[in-house]
């Protein structure tokens, strides 16, 4: 396990999916895969200096590379295409709810959506996620709170009175 190539391969296997998942928010699949490949190439060059828990660092590098993409916004149609298949009894309801959630996420301010995704997909602490988002922890907390509230409100079943 001391061999750098073996340790790097382990790093790649542990984090590739997470970094790609993040890149797919902002790029089509081929472009996202290229960004992730580039991210790990940079990680190899810097392997001796990587922090002990490298995922936030990897996501930060990927984020910077994604900024160079011409169309790097979070797009609902793109996310819908990647929606994972779930085999549960109430498939139809779940798919509808998840599609609705994706559309709401894609429609909200990108920084807010990103805050929610970074914390729920990867279990990052607000401080770690704030570093990736390039903002202060306080700002990040506000974004996260706003995103949760908007999504909750958008998916809340409405009464007839509210709809009229």
């Amino acid at each position: 396990m001391d061999d750098p190539e073996t340790r790097f391969t382990d790093l790649y296997d542990r984090h590739y999916r997470a970094v790609l998942g993040y890149a797919l928010l902002r790029a089509d699949r081929a472009a996202a895969e290229d960004v992730v490949g580039e991210t790990f190439l940079i990680a190899w060059r810097r392997f001796a200096d990587l922090p002990p828990e490298p995922l936030p660092w990897l996501l930060g590098v990927a984020r910077n590379l994604l900024r160079k993409q011409r169309d790097s916004g979070i797009r609902a149609e793109r996310l819908l295409a990647y929606l994972p298949v779930r085999t549960t009894p109430d498939v139809a309801d779940q798919v509808t709810e998840r599609e609705a959630a994706l559309i709401v996420l894609a429609a909200m301010a990108e920084a807010d959506a990103e805050a929610l995704i970074l914390t729920s997909w990867y279990g990052l602490t607000p401080r770690e996620a704030a570093k990736i988002a390039g903002c202060a922890a306080g700002t990040f907390a506000v974004r996260l709170h706003r995103a949760r509230r908007r999504l909750t409100e958008a998916l809340r079943p409405r009464t007839l009175q509210e709809q009229s």
């Binding site: 790649y12 296997d13 590739y16 999916r17 997470a18 790609l20 998942g21 797919l24 699949r29 895969e33 992730v36 490949g37 996310l79 990647y82 929606l83 994972p84 298949v85 779930r86 779940q94 709810e97 998840r98 959630a101 994706l102 996420l105 929610l116 995704i117 914390t119 729920s120 997909w121 949760r148 999504l151 909750t152 998916l155």
Partner: peptide
Amino acid sequence: IDDLVRSLRPDDVTEESHRARR
């Protein structure tokens, strides 16, 4: 809400891509 957002993570695509690109 966090559980719902977590269920949107594109695990199928990332798994397949990991195999293809590794």
